[in-house]
Design a binder for these strands. Sequence first.
DNA 1: CAACACGGCGCG
DNA 2: AAAGCGCGCCGTGTTG
Length: 827
Amino acid sequence: MAHLLWDMIESAGLSRTLTDVAVAVAEDARDCKRKKVVAGRAQLLAAIGKKTAVLLVGNVALEGVTAKRGIKQKRGRPWEDADGNIYIPCLPPGMIAYDERTTPLIEADVRLIADVAKSGKIPRENALEFTIVDSRRKFDDMVADLRGTVSYDIETGYEESPGLWKATLNPWKGHVDEDGEWVLDARIISIGFGTRARQWCLPLHHPEATSFGLTHEQMFASIDRQLRDCYLVAHNAKFDSLWLRIHYGVDWRADFDTMLAHWMIDENQRHGLKLLAQLYYGAPNYDADLDDKAGAGPLGSHCLYLAHDVYYTRALRFTLGKEMAADSGVERAFHSILMPIARLFVDVEYQGVLVDVERFEEAEVYLRTKLKKAEKDLHKAVAADVEGYEPGSINWRSTKQLAELFFDKLGLDVLDRTGGGAPSTCESVLKRLAHPAAVDLVEYRGADQMLKMFIDGWRPFLVKHADGWRLHPSFKLHGTVTGRASCERPNLQQVPRDSLIRSLIGAALGWSLVEIDLSQIEMRLAAELSGDQMLLGLFQRDEDVHWMTAIREIGRGGGMRDEVVTTAVEFVKRHPGTPWLKGLVSGLDKPKPKGQPFYRASIEYAQALEIVYKMGPDVAAEILPVWKELRKKAKAINFGYLFGMWWKKMVIYARDNYGVRLTDRQAQESRKVFFGLYPGLASWHERQRKHAQRHGYVRSLSGAIRRLPAATSHRDSPERGEALRQAINSPVQRFACELNFMVLLQLVEEFGLDVVRPVGTVHDAVLMEVRDDMVPTVVARADEIMRRPKMLDELKINLRVPIKGEAKVGPWSKGVSLDRWKKSRSN
DNA sequence: CAACACGGCGCG
DNA sequence: AAAGCGCGCCGTGTTG
């Protein structure tokens, strides 16, 4: 590693200026045991002596001097000791071998070394012109300077105990006071603005902040007025805008988010501001300690840090703007979809979702009881088979201990292994283990999972408002490589589908929760993009593609004879007048034979299957519930094969999810049938793969790009295979969620936040609170918008496949159609 | 004590 | 040769 770095230094033409540099290198961090580090440290300290610069290459070298690790955080930030030695922590160049994304960082390290060697000093950002606003005069100057393109950034924290400031990213952090009111503990420590000429740092709750005759409210009123005509730029603007909205009531919407812009430019990279500053401008690693940002450190260094942030944020707006302009598709998707939805998500997160806390407590009691019972059953079941077993000796949450129990002590067969090769104890294995304890463990895990994720997991995030308790999940618009949003703290997108937890989420009094979702959107888009005639035809005739697959799957093997015939017969009995039955059931118009149902004999399997298909899954499920399950299974088949699943995995999938035993042959056959049914999909797969292989990327209809560099490799590898499958999946997944965003944007644009309050998205669905008196209007309009969002016209995107969606009104998972909602309200 | 990987599981 | 995609969060266990 030392040689590698030295080569880089030499090729930068620096070796002669660096004769006075000691290089402290850990040859291999992993082999370096503690003793060796200590020895190395003594050597190192001796070597440092009169040197002007010390390179600390890698974690062990860093630890040798500072007794602390964390090279990734510390790198690029040199410091000077009392004797004037300069220490420069850097990444080991060998790191490039297993993470090529570190290349620019290592290059930046070399540049930094060069700088230090030439000047003998730690470089300063000399373009910086920052002012700490600590007087009325400076404040007025600042306000007057807020013109044109202005970047902004805040530092946040809270006072844990008097005088002790800690970092927090949660703008709602607070507590309930004696009067039962929610009091915010979170504070905006300071705010910075970057203009063409300067960087302004306005301390707000920093301990050293001085008062100069203006309240914060007065300051923000002035700033707010001035900013209305500015082009606002921020890095992860949603964060700053949300905090400012909560704490100062100002509504600032960024025109350009540098983090999101960089994500559009390369979703595979990381998007941190410090990283980008180093990447694009060779900036020093100016990152500060987390608690300094929160106000624990001196105001001077706090503001210096803030100044760097707004300086580089503003600079990035121009650099990234230009870079994005090189690709009109990317630019268009950024400005017409991403920035608008990013601005809207400030409202989404500000609103939060309402939680029924009374029923929340009930759910907790229910789950704790269930957990207790499962634990008791577990004890019993294990005690019966294990000699000398003592309750409490096994941690039921430990996969390691469970594996020992099942496969060593009880001697059960290892049915599957984990990715790491350990005997698996996952649900699908447990269900196949012939032991009562396995059954109990499934129960235990179920209750435990709900409790830890949604009861204990939610509690710290509950915030009290005038209209009830709310969660304010944070959405990451850059959270995926495909364009979907992800969600965290807590993750609203992983709430179980069954109603125990899901229905705790509702709406305020006078409002109703409305969920609209785009039906089978990924399948529809696959039809669109592939141009498969069968799929397109299905959707154009408004038939159900999963149902089609389900019926085909059964029909192929002639399975479920009883269910098929029973369901068809029952349907004929219930709906004899159905027009399309004519011709399908021979003898319908003939007189009924005495004593027996006339149709029983005359409905053949093939006919019956046709009838079942035509009645659709909902009607069929009313007759036999099994149809619902069957359609779900078909859905999995569709998605699996659609995106490149191989038959072998299908066998496992069918077994684990549906208890269906498929032979290898059957699975191979089912895959063949699938692509036989939709031949256009196969050729589309080929097109996508070819494109990715040739160009190294694929594109969504919106213009956004998914970069797949691994796809261009000529060598066949697992990475390339993965990239080629992503080439098929990404454009579908991306455009699906973009459509969802379009629908959401248009709804809010048309009705305004007084009528429609969006509270979240779940990939192809929107959750919102709708004012009760407007529910029918909004739902009707949502139905129209989903069929054709106007942004499709603006972006000149034409779809052959019809899009449609569904709306449900009422607590989540208990929502009903608009008609049923109206009826239930009129009673 | 903190950071990390893993196993497991929830969602679309 | 090997083959669905995309996420977040929890507890355990290891490591340093």
